[in-house]
């Protein structure tokens, strides 16, 4: 199968799962913004995406995307380290055009995983998971009271800082990932390379800012 036994095929799997995750992030971010306008509307969304069959199917599909992306990430990194060999240059200098993020995608991805685990503990476990097992008192609030969980979590400055660092890592991952995925699909040339990079930077910045603004607004709300 070319998606596993050729280098370009493996990269295509990375890109397809990566782009699908970017679309998921966009959707998740838009949902979060609802909380800024109306907490009732946000809780309605939470209810809608609780333990219903369609939300569960989507969750499983999403989890599969993550798992594939992560397995391939470690696999590619392993293959690449082997191809690079064990000898290291005594002196080596990074050319200016090489982005830092492009050489640290795995590290950034691992930070994303760590943030994700915390995020599961803060929200998912107490919300969707609580509904799945039918224990509605797993968390501090009801499983569909998302707005209360947001206010609760981001009232704590430590969580605010951790979530912002998490988002920053995601931003770096996406600024490289976006154009890299287009390049991997072959949808690039000298002109489109520059365009994808700008589109990718603007898009990642908007998505990450969308997430960050909810965190920051709720933090300031908790102060007054």
């Amino acid at each position: 199968m070319w998606l596993s036994n050729s280098s370009i095929g493996r990269k295509v799997v990375m890109s397809v799962t990566g782009v699908a995750l970017v679309l998921f992030l966009t959707f998740h971010m838009s949902m979060n913004l609802v909380a800024l306008f109306s907490e009732d509307a946000y809780n309605m969304v939470c209810e809608f995406l609780g333990a219903n069959w369609y939300a569960l199917v989507a969750t499983v599909a999403l989890a599969a995307l993550f798992v594939i992306h992560i397995i391939y990430a470690f696999w590619l990194t392993m293959l690449n380290r082997k191809a690079r060999g064990s000898e290291r240059y005594a002196v080596s200098q990074k050319p200016k055009s090489v982005e830092w993020a492009s050489q640290n995608m795995l590290v950034l991805g691992i930070v994303v995983i760590l943030g994700l685990l915390l995020h599961f503990a803060n929200f998912w476990y107490k919300m969707q998971f609580a509904e799945i097992i039918g224990d509605h008192f797993l968390g501090e609030f009801g499983p569909t009271d998302g707005a209360a969980y947001i206010a609760y979590t981001f009232g704590c400055p430590v969580y605010v800082v951790i979530y912002l660092v998490w988002l920053l890592a995601l931003w770096f991952h996406l600024t490289h990932g976006f154009w890299s995925a287009m390049q991997t699909f072959g949808w690039s040339n000298k002109i489109w390379f520059e365009r994808w990079r700008i589109i990718g930077n603007v898009y990642s910045t908007l998505v990450v800012l969308g997430f960050a603004v909810v965190v920051v607004v709720y933090f300031f709300k908790s102060l007054c």
Binding site: L79, N80, K82, V98, S180, Q183, F185, W187, N189
Partner: peptide, 27 residues
């Protein structure tokens, strides 16, 4: 190895070969 689009190659290539060729190969 598997290309992860770091662009170190085109920066160091003595003939300034562009990574737009890599996009063409992928395509």
């Amino acid at each position: 190895g598997n290309c992860t689009n770091t662009r170190a190659c085109e920066a160091e290539c003595p003939k300034n070969v562009s990574i737009s060729n890599i996009a063409r190969l992928n395509r």
